[in-house]
Amino acid sequence: MRTDYDAAVLGAGVAGSSLAAMLAARGWVTALMDRQRFPKHKVCGEFLSPESQHILSAMGLRETVQSLEPHRISRIALYLAGGGQVELPLPGTALGVSRYRLDAALHRHAVAEGAFLLQGGTVTAVVPYEHGYILHVRQGRESTEITARAVVAAWGAGGQGRILGRHDHRVDDGSWRKRRSGSAHERGAIGVKSHFAWSAGASSPSDAVELYFFPGGYLGINGIECGHYNMAALLDSEDIPRSHSTVEGMLMEAVSRNPALHSRMVDAQPVHGTESAVAPVHISKHPVPWSVIPHIGDAIGRIPPLCGDGMSMGLRSAQLCAADAHRYLAGEWTYEQWRIAYTQAIYSQFSGPLRWGKVVEGMLRHPAASRLLPGLARLSPRLACKFVEATRLRPG
């Protein structure tokens, strides 16, 4: 293992892998680090929005993603709790692809660009020193130290804040059930996901990302590779998860709460081994682009899953951070100049989608939505599309 780097990226998801690849391509010695081992299934809508594909093209990854055999998606179908339905076109073609495949492809790309992928090691502390940072890394019973001139947080929402003096609330291995104390606000929601396949000849979901609302949360279905479909749900922690101990049990309880969803799932079978859960899930109103070190992806803030632009925001933040980090590492900017420029860019581009995402989520989950929104969408489809656009990044 190398012991000194120009940059260390903590978290090897979509944002972290992309950033590591871009820094390595610019000639910087870059470590891409994650405490988990890949490939692995993760709670995610597994939906690459139309906006994200402009960024993938700029990164030279469009063909790589197409080689993963993604499912093409062109519209949104909303099934509200009271029975109302709204269909809207997407502003382009989206792609459905599992994180199991996508993360592995992004890792290969980062390594091909020259990044060092370090898996299964837990960073226990990040300590400033004269020339950057010292990272304390534990892998099994062994501990080591590495140094990096710059460190970037790509550890997701909640993440590994304890290494910088903040408590780590993130879990992804089922141990979330042990963390039930505290207020409902502190607990947040619980995210669960699994892949499903439809029986031969059955009416499976088509070219839409389908969103179903019900008492206790909402759930999305969209196609991915291999003819499979991803089902991901955001559930109120004090409702369905209190009476079910498995991901499959929670999803089936959610299915029973929306008649349209129940009908859709009659011929579906779970793909075992694809289940995952994460808690707590806190939806952000405001971005947090910098706290001791720069943040990218969900470490900045989590947009409601129903908006479907999370991976796009992860890719965009990696793009912005790579350009600014390069200037800092090249000696063109001071650390403070990097912080100011990056913070301003993130606030400018992310504040609107995070704020409107929260508003739209609240509207769609409100009981009155079933009565009002279908009629509004029919009367003014352009206005309905504007609400969708407000939750998404502007092309850039």
Rank of each mutant, 00 (worst) to 15 (best):
R99S: 13
V86K: 03
A157K: 02
H167Q: 08
G82M: 05
G84C: 14
R170E: 11
H136V: 13
W176V: 06
L90S: 00
Q139H: 10
H167A: 15
V126G: 02
R101E: 04
Y100E: 02
R101S: 07
G84V: 14
R180C: 13
H107T: 06
E87D: 14
Q160D: 05
V171T: 03
E87T: 11
E145Y: 15
A125T: 04
T144A: 13
G159C: 12
Y79N: 10
S194L: 12
R72H: 09
I146S: 03
T93A: 15
D173W: 10
H185E: 01
W155H: 02
R149I: 09
R108M: 14
T124S: 15
G140N: 09
I73H: 01
A184Y: 15
L88E: 11
A77P: 01
R170C: 08
A81L: 14
H169Q: 10
W176I: 14
G159N: 12
G165C: 04
H131W: 05
G191W: 08
I190D: 04
V123H: 04
R101M: 08
R179F: 15
L80S: 03
G140F: 06
Q119L: 05
H169S: 15
A104P: 08
L95S: 03
G140W: 12
G120N: 08
R72C: 07
H107W: 00
G140M: 10
G132E: 15
A81D: 08
H195E: 07
G161T: 14
I190K: 04
Y129I: 04
L117K: 01
G140T: 11
S143C: 08
Y79A: 00
S143K: 11
W155E: 06
A104L: 06
R72N: 05
I76A: 13
